[in-house]
Design a protein around this nucleic acid. Structure first.
Lengths: 332, 332
DNA sequence: TTGAAAGCGCTAACAA
DNA sequence: TTGTTAGCGCTTTCAA
């Protein structure tokens, strides 16, 4: 009460100060409406304020056996659009008074395991896995955790795993179809990770669109990578100064910009001599010249909807695709 | 033991399984070396594995009165370089077996308060405030929290607050000085937030460098903003197609790119008719054409060092500047 | 080297 | 509407 150094003030102190029991304090502070009178509530809140009381989260979580935290596992490298998704997540979390705990991991086992264990150990109330491809072992770890979870910006075959993502097959298909309608018959597709389901789906969409237009695909129009700027740049370097294709789809914004820069290094006019389009549609496509036509994914909404579904498992669809759009700009 | 549904396994179950007391289990699992024999330890660990035991973080934190979590408050808008800083933080956190909890906030009171309360309520062991400018009330809240904390990528006058940042005065000075040495005498400085200490310092450095070269500054060479692409773009629009300046410093990469694009819209040749340089030096400066000369900040290292200092308060300097470098590219 | 037991701060029966 | 009390799962004296 008078002592020199600051003790942490507990519910007990507040109870004493307000001259009620700790149970009452607990009820008031947890807003268990109906279980206390207004006067008491006021007294308690005043006392709490006066003492500078802060609820001890660990204690609450221990006794309730759950935490008001949503865990997000995100790749640190593919963070170009992750921010937008996370903002969407945060916006919903804020409304529900939840905290968001973000952990970085890669497409690599150790960090994933570590992140997962951290989250599971904290009994977070939900886990969102954002654009990272879990190893089989970690997938099992998560699935067995009994913690509600959902994958964002990653889709899976079948309906075992719940995800909220863009339909990458359709992305591949429609990007290609758009270019075909523009008159292109020889189209490159570059920098996707063909070991990922996303990459495979985009390729499949691309191939089907070509086939639907009765166009034959040459295998070296397809140049894999890891969605990076450098992969796009290198892919274009392989196409050369007199490319066999008249249009190239970069499977990420950075990749498409890589293509663009290398094309310009070759002296190719975009879009006259080479059309380029991009998949993602972050702000980056607007800061390069010419601005890139893009498949624009609704990342913010993806975060919002994924988070919302995580919180309402009963009404949520098992999995869901978020619509994307095609924004025509100056590169096609 | 046999029942259909999975109960959460506690230290007690492990103790029974290994036929020791819970105290022993606790000691083994907390690696209190010297307080148990090797055989016992082995038995305990086996039992824990067999049962799939996971330590309950809330319980640990409740009893030890501290958590193995570092809280990071970050702006969601200025996230261009935040990722790099966060990666630096994570790398150190990983080594020390700490979790990092990232909360988004803005230069706006409510979200800040919320984020701060969340962190304080969890008794995190440290807080890193990353490039967000706390309001006075929230500054007080944090300072009074008794939780170790540090500001990253933000500096302050005086030595009250501990920070790890770049020396923005020097950044402003050296960027300007470099252009002067290149022969420029009329230099613009655009898009910094002049309400922020960072912005003020950069302007001060700029002015002093000009003065040192006996150059007079015209006030409309200085065009404030919020470090955004649009601010850079607009600033250049104000300079016009026949700008009064021969060089412009964008106070962020995005701002500088805005300047670049508007300059090119005017048909100005860069760097021949207008030199442009950028402050930050993220990957963005390399994907535009021409590539931008930049003051390159060591963000990753900033995160690493800031985090390290947070963990070793006794040996850490009160505040520290992280060296930056000047990378000459094609825009000057 | 091990065990018994107290207690971290809080919630939630149960009673009153 | 309020109070009493039994834990939540763990760490840490204290004793053995």
């Amino acid at each position: 009460m008078k002592g020199g150094f600051v003790m942490t003030v507990t519910i007990k102190d507040v109870a004493a100060e307000a001259d009620v029991s700790i149970a009452t304090v607990s009820r008031v502070l947890a807003n268990k409406a109906g279980f206390y009178s207004d006067k008491t509530a006021a007294r308690v809140r005043e006392a709490a304020d006066r003492l500078g009381y802060r609820k001890n989260t660990s204690a609450v979580e221990l006794v309730t056996q759950k935490s008001q935290v949503i865990g997000v596992i995100v790749s640190s490298t593919k963070t170009n659009f992750s921010n937008q998704i996370i903002e969407g997540i945060q916006s919903v979390a804020f409304k529900h008074d939840l905290s968001v705990m973000i952990l970085y991991a890669e497409d690599e086992g150790d960090l994933q395991t570590r992140a997962l264990r951290t989250l599971i150990g904290r009994s977070v109330m939900g886990i969102l896995v954002l654009a990272v491809q879990l190893t089989d072992a970690n997938l099992a770890l998560l699935e067995n955790s009994r913690i509600p979870h959902r994958y964002l910006s990653t889709s899976f075959k079948g309906d075992k795993l719940a995800f909220t993502a863009s339909d990458d097959y359709q992305i591949g298909y429609q990007a290609t179809d758009y270019l075909i309608k523009k008159g292109h018959q020889r189209i490159g597709l570059v920098a996707m990770d063909v070991n990922s389901y996303i990459g495979q789906q985009r390729v499949a969409g691309y191939r089907d669109a070509m086939k639907a237009a009765q166009l034959t695909v040459s295998d070296d129009w397809i140049k894999p990578g890891l969605f990076t700027y450098q992969d796009g740049f290198n892919a274009m370097a392989e196409f050369g100064a007199e490319p066999d294709v008249t249009a190239v789809i970069g499977t990420s914004d950075m990749a498409a910009i890589g293509v663009l820069n290398q094309a310009q290094n070759f002296g190719l006019k975009v879009p006259e001599q080479l059309a380029i389009m991009s998949i993602d549609g972050t702000e980056l496509v607007k800061i390069v010249r010419p601005q890139l036509t893009s498949i624009t994914q609704a990342f913010y909404e993806m975060g919002q909807r994924g988070m919302t579904h995580l919180l309402t498992p009963t009404t949520a669809p098992a999995s869901e695709f978020i619509p994307f759009k095609l924004d025509e700009r100056s590169s096609t």
